[in-house]
Design a binder for these strands. Structure first.
Length: 386
RNA sequence: GUGGCCUUAGCUCAAUCGGCAGAGCACUGGAUUGUGGCUCCAGAGGUUACGGGUUCAAGCCCCGUAGGCCACC
């Protein structure tokens, strides 16, 4: 495992403590990822509505695929027989597979978690399946992504009393050790996940425990739920200082709005994934500097302007708001593709702007400008200094 | 020409014995964070074809007019 992912810090956080943000490079078997970076989510070995050329044009350098979904369909063994995930989806650049822990816990009501693993029903046909750390690692090795992730036990948001969180967190720790022990592929990295819910002491012990294991990267899980921005910032305030001096890449799982990404970078996070820019795109929400446009709104039906004037994406360079508004009303497939291209282009460009600021040494100073571009609602996102 | 049935929101249709006119879709907004393109939330929208009558009260009962469908000369 060591060597499959090498993280190189290009610009570390300044000595004055004004930010924990940093710029780096994550070297993986299929290429190098500039950080901070955002990973579009391609659950079923495809970023919905896009092909690899679209992804490339949008600026993607790494995508996330989903172990749970690909295990159920078409099956990890089939993908292995067909030459692995990269060849299967015709994407020859880095891929990270989620462990399936989140899906097993979040997507399915019909599940049973015990100390050894999770028994669950397929959301396709109701058939019974079981995941444990060893199996989740084996499935991911068969898929063959650049990065695999340890099987964890996230806590579903909402119904999370302290005892439930503590139990899920200690399970995550035991499963982290088992995932490490089971992992064999030398050409694949393995990341571990910090849990602990919103409890400061559990987050602290989880960060120490996971960071104490020889993972290639550290994930922060359990934070893309229904917590408030303040609660999220509080968790990062606890976790991120504990990772100071740790040479490994830090990946915050599930966050996706530009303002979320920016604030987490400020806290020291290097890597992100989220369905959000793609999902809201499919529902007509287009991200532009300073805010968002809902292309389903009637006012766009006669608007000849592009969605975003200076955007290089295939939507903005060729089509009008009126055309896209029409496509959405007609439920034409092209609407999903064009809107997704745009939101991913915007998001990945936003990350590139953050990287530029970090490399130019202007980052903490440029936070207000970046926040404005992110369209953060006034007052909704507090700039929490690390 | 005669007879029967029908006409309620933009569309398709509900509304018990005559007792506050509703639904689905469409429309107007909003939500969506380790992916189900799904879905969820909220809102607007009515001279019940038109004109009379009966009644405390009419979408509903009575008369007339217009339009639609069907059957029969």
């Amino acid at each position: 495992m060591p060597g499959a992912a090498r993280f190189e810090v290009l610009v570390g956080p300044p000595a004055d403590g004004s930010t924990r943000a940093r710029a780096g490079r994550l070297h993986l078997p299929h290429g190098t990822v500039e950080t901070p970076q955002f990973m579009p989510v391609g659950t079923n070995a495809t970023v919905k509505a896009l092909d690899p050329d679209d992804l490339d044009a949008a600026g993607a350098s790494i995508v996330l695929a989903n172990t749970y979904h690909l295990y159920l369909r078409p099956g990890h063994e089939r993908i292995a027989r067909l030459g692995g995930l990269h060849r299967f989806m015709a994407w020859d650049r880095p891929i990270l597979t989620d462990s399936g822990g989140f899906q097993v816990v979040s997507l399915d009501d019909l599940r049973r978690v015990d100390d050894d693993g999770v028994t669950f029903r397929s959301h396709h046909d109701g058939s019974l399946h079981r995941f444990d750390p060893e199996h989740a690692v084996a499935v991911q090795e068969a898929l063959g992504a650049d990065v695999a992730v340890a099987f964890d036990h996230p806590v579903p948001p909402g119904s999370s009393d302290r005892r439930t969180v503590a139990e899920a967190t200690s399970r995550t720790h035991r499963w982290a050790e088992r995932s490490l022990a089971a992992h064999r592929r030398a050409d694949q990295a393995l990341f571990g996940i910090i849990q602990g819910g919103l409890e400061a002491d559990l987050r602290t012990s989880s960060a120490r425990f996971i960071a104490g294991l020889p993972f290639d990267g550290i994930c922060i899980g359990g934070l893309a739920g229904d917590e408030t921005p303040e609660e999220r910032a509080a968790v990062l305030d606890v976790v991120m200082p504990l990772l100071d001096g740790d040479p490994r890449v830090r990946y915050l799982m599930g966050l996706g709005t530009p303002a979320d990404l920016l604030m987490a970078v400020h806290q020291g996070v290097d890597l992100f994934d989220s369905v959000l820019p793609a999902r809201v795109a499919r529902n007509g929400q287009l991200w532009v500097p300073g805010g968002r446009l809902n292309l389903r709104n009637a006012r766009f039906l006669d608007d000849p302007e592009p969605v975003q004037e200076d955007c290089p994406c295939r939507l903005c360079t060729r089509f009008s708001r009126a055309y896209l508004a029409h496509l959405f009303r007609a439920r034409e497939l092209l609407a999903y593709r064009l809107a997704t291209c745009h939101n991913l282009t915007f998001t990945l460009d936003f990350m590139a702007r953050i990287r530029s600021a970090l490399r130019a040494g202007t980052f903490p100073h440029s936070l207000p400008d970046l926040l404005a571009r992110a369209g953060a609602r006034t007052g909704a996102v507090a700039v929490t200094s690390p």
